[in-house]
């Protein structure tokens, strides 16, 4: 039996709009992972519109003694959304880097998988510069987490996984794809 922590922004939650892409809690990747690893204990925090520091402050404040074996974290889009005012972005990026490094140090005994920040191809139309900022933040995550940085963007585009309304949130197809990727990663991890 393993202890698995899942931390996400709103992408860990089900969506109810547009109606054509509504899906249920039971179709979200955290739920699908729970179903696969039924004998494990889970703690999940999914919080919409949250920055990474606010998100990780919760388990750092209350759950360090729980010592999770595995942590899955999906966060970063809300950190890199703000547009490019150069001084502000520099501070935000520096703060983001420090936060994710700190999280890795605090939970040094846990295997942490950090999902790639991703957006749909049309997101740039409504949020100019987002692709570049997402790439920069992903580089930071990859530098800190190395092989435990979980690439998902390519897969999400393959399965047409972005919500048709905002091109940011995942739809049901993306959640299934994410669950498949993460289950494989967790299985590889627990076999070691």
């Amino acid at each position: 039996m393993y202890k698995i922590m899942i931390l996400t922004d709103s992408d860990g939650c089900p969506r109810s709009f547009p109606a054509s892409e509504a899906f249920e809690l039971e179709e979200t990747y955290p739920y699908l992972i729970r179903e696969h690893f039924k004998s494990s204990t889970f703690w999940q925090l999914s919080y919409g519109d949250i920055t990474t520091m606010k998100l990780v402050n919760q388990p750092m404040g209350y759950l360090t003694h729980w010592d999770p074996n595995i942590i899955i974290i999906q966060s970063g889009i809300n950190d890199c959304k703000p547009e490019e005012f150069s001084d502000l972005q520099k501070d935000l990026k520096s703060s983001f880097r420090t936060t994710i490094k700190k999280f890795k140090l605090v939970f040094s005994k846990s295997k942490i998988f950090w999902l790639e920040i991703c957006v749909g191809t049309r997101c740039e139309e409504t949020c100019p510069g987002i692709n570049r900022r997402v790439a920069e933040y992903n580089r930071i995550i990859a530098q800190v987490y190395g092989e435990d940085f979980v690439s998902v963007q390519k897969k999400m585009l393959e399965v047409d996984g972005f919500n048709a309304a905002d091109h940011v949130h995942w739809n049901k197809r993306a959640h299934q794809a994410a669950a498949d990727i993460l289950i494989e990663r967790i299985n590889a991890c627990i076999k070691l």
Binding site: K54, N57, T64, T98, T99, K102, V106
Partner: peptide
């Protein structure tokens, strides 16, 4: 330190991890 992280620095391990994240 960021204002938001100060209340979370309530034990040695977290404080040390925080410092290392800034300095290393």
């Amino acid at each position: 330190f960021e204002d938001e992280e100060i209340p979370t620095m309530i034990n040695y391990h977290i404080i040390l991890s925080t410092i290392r994240a800034y300095l290393e």
